[in-house]
Design a protein around this nucleic acid. Structure first.
Lengths: 193, 193
DNA sequence: GCCAGAAACGAACGATCGTGCTAGAAAGGT
DNA sequence: ACCTTTCTAGCACGATCGTTCGTTTCTGGC
């Protein structure tokens, strides 16, 4: 990896961490430069615009999320076990606020602002949601879930459960957040059996 | 109502509408002044600081939400019917993006930024969630829900369902969002019976 | 119709925003 | 060790940020 690429990655790492706290739109070239010890223009040279920076932060977060949540789940046995693994890793990743939070807040920030960032968010979500639905579908064909259960509905519902978790855990700092989320998840699975 | 109070209300209305699109933190004195036809300083004089403006926008949105969702629900018969009415009005209010969206995006924006805004968000959510739990509790004592059902868990789960709705409806512009949300809600009620 | 007080304006402030341009420092292949 | 490419700093720009202040315009009770 070249020097430039190394600092670019370092900047993206910092940016992703900051953005998961104050939001993607709240990112600032100046403060990000101060954080990384670069000059404003030196940092800016790596990205062609602020919007491009945001897009790259999003892509970076997506990779992080895949590493922390999706890939570990794919390592689990197919079917119900994989769905459960996905859930567990998702919760674990969201517990200390990583890329999952970034996606939650970015989705809320850009849900009404058309443009490439929003498009990217939509694409990422559809990709992920398809993966979830596929995992569930395998569970159906393995006989672990009712054959008339709707995989897309399950993916939608699971996402809602996770949004509820992030809200309770991060905004409310609710100690019972995880327990409630786990119960909601079990309820979701139970309804599909 | 005095002249000053009238313009204050008008500004808050505009601000709430804008904030539900671009977020509470995205509000700007300048653009808000341009929107309302006031000068920057003329507008600023009504609020002592930007943070105070944001706090007042939040309070304004809370009243709007109460009017659109909570009060109509309270007009329905107690118990399950009231819970259902609450849900229906909540969905209807969120369909075309009013104060509900503001709370969703503001919660995501401030979930990691301590301060009065966040405190206010937490307080409002706890108040509302208590109301929901209370409605559900009445449903229990009327025998419509299982006696061992957990009202707080129900309120938490319902909130997750609604967050999923806003996400699917506003970010994804998913046509099936409302149908999915309705099914998720029915599933929630069914599990409580 | 006058006059006190409320309400709005215009100009300016220091700071910071995103973005260019140019020169020099560092890196790395040969 | 040289030379080319890559990277970074410095400086400056116009715009906009939140905020202050002094002045002007409007309102409403008498």
């Amino acid at each position: 990896m070249s020097k430039g690429e190394a600092t670019r990655q370092a900047v993206l790492g910092r940016a992703a961490a900051t953005a998961s706290r104050i939001g993607l739109a709240g990112l600032t070239i100046g403060s990000l430069a101060a954080d990384t010890g670069l000059s404003k223009s030196g940092l800016f040279a790596h990205f062609q615009s602020k919007e491009s920076l945001q897009a790259q932060v999003l892509a970076y977060a997506r990779e992080l999320f895949t590493d922390q949540v999706v890939r570990p789940a794919l390592a689990a046995p197919r079917g119900e076990a994989r769905v459960r693994a996905l859930f567990e890793h998702w919760v674990a990743a969201g517990r200390e606020g990583g890329p999952s939070c970034l996606f939650v807040s970015a989705s809320a920030e850009y849900d009404d602002q058309p443009g490439p960032i929003r498009d990217q968010l939509v694409r990422d979500h559809l990709d992920f949601t398809d993966s979830v639905a596929q995992m569930f579908r395998t569970g159906i064909s393995e006989g672990r879930f009712r054959s008339d259960a709707d995989p897309d509905q399950f993916a939608h519902d699971l996402h809602g459960v996770m949004l509820g978790f992030f809200h309770a855990h991060r905004l409310l700092a609710e100690p019972a957040a995880e327990a409630r989320t786990r119960r909601a998840f079990e309820n979701l699975l139970a309804a599909a059996k």
